[in-house]
Design a protein around this nucleic acid. Structure first.
Length: 486
RNA sequence: GGCCCCAUCGUCUAGCCAGGUUAGGACACCAGCCUUUCAAGCUGGCGACACGGGUUCGAAUCCCGUUGGGGCUACCA
């Protein structure tokens, strides 16, 4: 096993609180957790809220809630990067004192103009060659004169190789290195500085993050070296794409963990789906518990290429979890959806019976909640369209009355017993069982689809079932459709 | 423009590193079975190595190139 894949590890998930928790970020968090569980160690949450204009506390809270809901366990944190700005600045000044960094007096405008000019004539731009380092005297003079300055890191003119857990060794040529700004002229640290100082301070051993940072990694390696710190191992994860093959965006559907929660996806289902989007255990397993994933997880099996987020497959996994999860898990997560449909007070015992009957037919918690509504209503509003077929059958009300009477006499009101009653009655009157079954389903649930009728009959209950059957018979009698004589 | 990353069924992927498979599985789709409905389940079908050169007896697998996606190239993160 390569040394990079040995524990214990200290990993971190470091989102910017600029919105909801994006599924790409969630997946990064999952891989960090899986790595930490597999190898032992610590999982750190760090909120990168240095860009005050784009961050706010509510968003930070939202991200923490979403992680908790998803079931990603955090061992340390959350740490707020915004509270460590002085520390970052201090390190920049230290690098300056050690002459590993230098003053840059060029204004952004000046920099931009020169860059445009050089790029314009087809040459490649580097600050290093375009401007260079001011002499110590010059620097002192200009500081004294009160000129504003930024601080740049002196990046050695040499090839930097990123040893990446996902992509292998990625070399960046010496000509690609440039002296970048670590402290702005207003005294605030740049992202690169903050990240590296924090990673050093927090003892991070493995940096697992999005692919968009791969090109930044040589900068970070240069910084770690300048800081005199050990360079952590890196792993850069590919992007998640929408069905249009472009970066996942609102255009093509839900993008945040919160949205899937609100759709009624079980957290473990989302976790399972996301974990398999860019990683596989190497065999054909797809439905895996978190424990199984931890057991099978290996960072070197992380995929290199971008993956399209497929709502259909998520729906399938969700349905699987709806069917296989413990009842108590379903009940727990179903609560908010019950509240939405006005069933907030439904007793747990009753819910468990009904969930057992309906879970196979609901892909999401939301669908499940909607299917349960009618059991808690006093009666059913029959749909004229759905019942039209039955309203043409003049003999039906009488048969249903007899069926209802049969149900009423049962001592053991079970699926088998009610089925027996119905089938006997059908035989007696020489009609097909289906002739009675379909109207019974409508009578009991108001719907033409759903679980097996006898399950529904029993789930509705003997008392309420009788009332519903009577009401349905009344409805049929009151709204008959005359069939035209041939 | 420069630097870097990526490329197997429509989608997620196994296989690639240690060349020899009828290129396997899953979702979706289609058909059949089951059946009181709708699902679920079961069985079967459809369907891929981006392209072009090498190397080799033999290439999805190794090398080069092309094309196509993407990232970085900021006093954004």
């Amino acid at each position: 096993m390569p040394v990079e894949l040995q524990g214990p590890v200290r990993v971190r998930f470091a989102p910017s609180p600029t919105g909801y928790l994006h599924v790409g970020g969630a997946r990064t968090a999952i891989y960090n957790e899986l790595l930490r569980r597999r190898l032992g160690g610590v999982n750190i949450l760090r909120i990168e809220d240095t860009d005050k204009q784009r961050s706010d506390e509510a968003m930070t809270r939202q991200i923490i809630d979403a992680l908790e809901w998803l079931g990603v366990e955090i061992d340390e944190g959350p740490f707020l990067q915004s509270e460590r700005l002085e520390r970052h600045r201090g390190e920049a000044l230290r690098l300056l004192a050690e002459e590993k960094a230098y003053h840059c007096f060029r204004t952004p405008e000046e920099l931009d103009a020169r860059r445009q000019e050089i790029l314009g004539r087809g040459d490649s731009y580097r600050y290093k060659t375009a401007f260079g380092v001011p002499t110590r005297d010059e620097a002192e003079r200009r500081i004294e004169a009160g000129e504003p300055y930024a601080i740049r890191l002196k990046v050695p003119d040499e090839e930097i190789v990123v040893r990446d857990l996902v992509r292998g060794d990625v070399p960046f040529p010496a000509e690609a290195q440039d002296d970048f700004i670590i402290l702005r002229s207003d005294g605030t640290p740049t992202y690169h500085l903050s990240v590296c100082v924090d990673d050093v301070d927090m003892g991070v051993t493995h940096v697992v993050r999005g692919e968009d940072h791969l090109s930044n990694t040589p900068k970070h390696i240069a910084l770690f070296r300048a800081l005199g710190a050990e360079v952590p191992a890196f792993g850069h994860l590919p992007l998640i794409l929408g069905t249009d093959k472009k970066r996942l965006s609102k255009r093509t559907g839900a993008t945040s963990v919160e949205e899937f929660r609100d759709q009624g996806i079980l957290p473990r289902a989302l976790y399972n789906y996301l974990a398999l989007l860019g990683w596989s255990p190497g065999d054909d397993r797809e439905l895996m518990s978190r424990e199984e994933m931890i057991e099978a997880f290996s960072a070197d099996r992380l995929l290199k290429s971008a993956a399209v987020f497929d709502p259909d497959k998520l729906a399938w996994i969700s349905a699987q979890y709806m069917f296989h999860s413990d009842l108590s898990v379903i009940v727990e997560h179903l609560r908010p959806f019950l509240t939405e449909v006005g069933l907030g007070e439904a007793p747990e015992e009753r819910l468990r019976e009904l969930i057992e009957v309906h879970r196979l037919r609901a892909k999401t918690l939301r669908e499940l909640a909607e299917q349960l509504v009618h059991y808690f209503q006093d009666g059913i509003d029959y749909d004229d369209e759905l019942t039209s077929k039955f309203r043409r059958q003049a003999e039906l009300p009488t048969l249903l009355e007899e069926l209802s009477a049969g149900f009423a006499t049962l001592d053991d009101y079970t699926v088998d017993a009610t089925e027996q009653v119905l089938r006997d009655l059908a035989t007696k009157h020489e009609v097909k069982a289906g002739f009675l079954i379909h109207p019974t389903r409508i009578a009991m649930s108001g719907s033409k689809t759903g679980p097996g009728v006898f399950d529904v009959v029993v789930a509705v209950g003997q008392e309420e079932g009788k009332r519903r059957m009577s009401a349905f018979v009344e409805y049929l009698k009151a709204n008959p459709i005359e069939t035209e004589a041939e």
